[in-house]
Simulated scan of single mutants.
Amino acid sequence: MLAWSQAELAMAAKVSRMTLVDFERGARTPHPNNLAAIRAALEAAGCEFIPENGGGAGVRLKKAAAQDA
């Protein structure tokens, strides 16, 4: 969604790139503080996490705020 590389996400979340690599390939689950940092970095960049509501959990980009004329 953001077209970020693993290195860019790692830098934004302040976690190691290997943490992301292992998480993406299912080798391990990151520690809760690393998961929170990854989520916070994605949210700061405009991603919105949608909770389970019967249609499945998801993620989307937030709408841009309306510009004042």
Score class of each variant (00 low, 15 high):
Ala64Leu: 14
Met1Tyr: 06
Ala12Ile: 03
Ala45Val: 05
Ile38Cys: 08
Leu9Gly: 06
Ala3Leu: 10
Leu2Arg: 15
Leu61Ser: 05
Asp22Val: 00
Pro30Gln: 01
Leu35Arg: 07
Ala10Gly: 09
Trp4Lys: 10
Ser16Thr: 13
Leu61Cys: 10
Ser5Leu: 04
Cys47Trp: 07
Glu8Leu: 07
Leu9Ser: 07
Arg25Glu: 06
Ala65Met: 05
Ala66Ser: 09
Ala36Ser: 13
Lys62Met: 13
Ala40Tyr: 05
His31Lys: 12
Ala64Cys: 06
Met11Asp: 12
Ala10Val: 05
Ala7Tyr: 07
Ala45Lys: 14
Gly54His: 08
Ala27Pro: 00
Ala37Asn: 12
Arg17Lys: 15
Arg25Phe: 00
Glu43His: 04
Glu24Thr: 06
Ala7Asn: 12
Ala10Met: 05
Val15Lys: 03
Pro30Asn: 01
Val21Ser: 14
Ala65Gly: 04
Asp68Val: 08
Thr19Leu: 04
Glu8Ala: 14
Met18Thr: 15
Leu9Asn: 08
Ala10Ile: 02
Lys62Ala: 15
Lys14Gly: 13
Ala64Gln: 13
Ile38Gly: 01
Phe23Trp: 09
Ala13Pro: 04
Gly54Met: 09
Ala10Ser: 09
Gly58Ala: 13
Val59Asn: 06
Pro51Val: 11
Asn33Ser: 09
Ala12Phe: 01
Val59Thr: 10
Pro32Gly: 02
Lys63Arg: 06
Glu8Ser: 10
Arg60Tyr: 03
Lys63His: 06
Asn53Gly: 15
Gly58Glu: 07
Gln6Ser: 11
Pro30Cys: 01
Ala12Cys: 01
Gly26Gln: 09
Ala45Asp: 08
Leu35Gln: 05
Arg17Thr: 13
Ala40Val: 06
Ala36Asn: 08
Arg60Leu: 06
Glu48Val: 15
Gln67Trp: 01
Leu9Phe: 04
Trp4Asn: 03
Glu52Gly: 10
Gln6Trp: 06
Ala13His: 02
Ala69Pro: 14
Met18Tyr: 03
Ala44Thr: 12
Leu20Gly: 02
Arg25Gln: 08
Ala66Phe: 00
Leu61Lys: 14
Phe49Leu: 15
Leu61Met: 15
Ala37Tyr: 04
Ala65Leu: 11
Gly26Val: 11
Gln67Ala: 12
Ala44Met: 08
Arg17Glu: 14
Ile50His: 12
Gly46Trp: 10
Trp4Val: 04
Glu8Phe: 02
Leu42Val: 07
Gln67Phe: 02
Val59Met: 15
Phe23Ala: 13
Gly26Lys: 08
Ile38Val: 12
Lys63Val: 05
Gly58Cys: 06
Gly56Arg: 13
Ala65Asp: 10
Ala65Gln: 07
Ala10Tyr: 03
Pro51Thr: 10
Phe23Leu: 11
Ile38Glu: 01
Val15Thr: 08
Ala27Thr: 00
Asn53Gln: 14
Ala37Cys: 05
Leu42Met: 15
Gln6His: 14
Leu2Val: 13
Ala64Tyr: 04
Arg60Ile: 07
Ile38Pro: 01
Arg60Trp: 04
Phe23Thr: 05
Gly54Pro: 11
Glu8Pro: 02
Ala36Pro: 02
Thr29Asn: 05
Ala13Asn: 03
Asn34Gln: 12
Met11Gly: 09
Ala40Ile: 02
Ser16His: 10
Arg25Ser: 06
Arg17Asp: 04
Lys62Asn: 07
Asn34Leu: 00
Lys14Tyr: 00
Gly54Lys: 11
Ala44Phe: 01
Leu2Tyr: 11
Met11Leu: 12
Ala37Ile: 06
Asn33Met: 04
Met18Val: 12
